[in-house]
Design a protein around this nucleic acid. Sequence first.
DNA 1: CCAAAAGTGTTAGTCATACACCCATGA
DNA 2: TCATGGGTGTATGACTAACACTTTTGG
Lengths: 223, 223
Amino acid sequence: MKSLPPKAKPEVTVDVVAFTVEDSQLKVLLVRRAREPFVGTFTLPGGFMWEGETSAQAALRNLRTKSGVDSNIFSEQLYTFDDPQRDKRGHIISVAYMALVPLEKISKHISLDVKLAPVADVGQLPFDHSQILAYATKRLRTKLGYSNVAYSLLPKLFTLSQLQDVYEVILGHPIDKRNFRKKILSLGIIEPTEQKLTGRKHRPARLFKFAQRSYAELEEPIF
Amino acid sequence: MKSLPPKAKPEVTVDVVAFTVEDSQLKVLLVRRAREPFVGTFTLPGGFMWEGETSAQAALRNLRTKSGVDSNIFSEQLYTFDDPQRDKRGHIISVAYMALVPLEKISKHISLDVKLAPVADVGQLPFDHSQILAYATKRLRTKLGYSNVAYSLLPKLFTLSQLQDVYEVILGHPIDKRNFRKKILSLGIIEPTEQKLTGRKHRPARLFKFAQRSYAELEEPIF
DNA sequence: CCAAAAGTGTTAGTCATACACCCATGA
DNA sequence: TCATGGGTGTATGACTAACACTTTTGG
C-alpha cells in the first residue's frame, strides 16, 4: 500500500435513521435536502459534526434542526460509514445513528419537507443512505429481541395489541397472541395498570406500562 | 445549544483491539507508544486515518505497521468513540476495530514493544482504551454465540477440545463436553477430517476443520 | 501400569409452539 | 344483534442440562 500524505484527513458527519410505527408499518423519517448535492430530494437527516460536541449530540442536533423532532427520545450509534467514494464532495465519513420515536412526537412536525416513508418501499436514497437504512433496520430487529427498546416507540400507556403490533411490524412476521402475552408478561418488563382504553367499538383493552422507561438489556432473549 | 463555529472539525483515528487465545486465556495485543502523549506505555495499536482510505484499511495498516501482524485476519468495526475530552491533544475521535488472530500469526512478532496481555488483568490503559477493550470483549462474547467467528482464532485444523477451550475462555464459563460436541456438530459449521493429533501423552484427538473459513452468521444461536 | 485427555448416550425437566372459543363494547 | 378486537389454557414435541465411564496413547 502507498503512503498517502498523512496530513490529509477526512471530514465527519452524522446521519440519523429515525424510526416510528404508524398504521402497522415501520416508517423512517426523511427530510428534503436544502443544499447541493441532491437539493430537494428526501434523505436521512444529518450534517457535519462540530468540534467540541459528541457525535450523539450532533445526531440529535441535526434531527432537531432539520425535522423539529426533539425531547427525550432513544438514540444509539450504529456504525461509521467511510467509503471514500460515498460523497462526491470529497472524503466525508458518516457516523450513523438510530433514533426511535413514538408517533405522537413526530406527527406535528410532518410538512412538505419532513415526511415518514414506509421502510418497506422507500426505494433508493441518495448517498449510501439506503445502506445505512438497511443496517439500522437489521439492528432494530435484533435489538428488539434482547432488550426493552419497544418502550421508545410507544406512549406511556398502551395495550398489549399495540405492543404486539410493534413487534410484528419490526420482526416482519405475525406472532401468536396468547404466546406473545405469556412471554412478554413473564419477562416482567411491562406492568398492568388499572386503566382501560374505552371508546372503541369493541371490548375495552387493559392499558399497560413499561416497568422501566429507559433502555435495558434482558438476561434471556425474547425470541 | 450554542452554535459552535461550523468549520472546526474533529480529526479521525482508528484503534484496534486484536484478540487471541493463549494458555486458555483471552489476550489482547498491546504495543508500546513511540510518541507523546504516553510515550513508552502500552496501548492498543492505532493511528490517524488518511484521506482516501477506509477506516478498515487504516485499522489493518496500523496493526501491521505497529505490531507486524498482517495477512488475512478477521476484523470488524466496533464503535466510534468521540468524547471531546478523550484525547488531550484536541478533539480526536476514534473508530475502534476488533481483530481476531490465531496465536500462530502473532507469536513471531512479540518483542519488547509488542506484547500479549490477558484481558482479565490488563489494568488501566491510556486514553479511553480500557473502555474500548471492554466494548470489544462484550462484542466478541455476543458474536461467538451466533456466528462462526471462532474459525478466526484457530489454525486450519484443530481438535474439539481446542475449540471448546476458545468458547470457554471467551464466554468465561465451563461447558459440558458432551453437550458442546453435540451442539457444535449439529450446526454443521465444522467437519471432521481423517487426521489425528498424535505425539501427546494421551489418546490422539481427531482433527476438525471449519466448513467455511470466512465469517457467517447462524440461523439459530449456539447458546 | 499409570496418567492424561479423548470420546461417547440417556434421561428428566423445561420451554416453545400450535391451536379455538367466549367476552365486552359501540353502532 | 352484529361486528370488532380483547382476553384466556392446554397438550405435544423439541431442546437443554445434567451426568460417568471406557478408550487410546506416551512415559
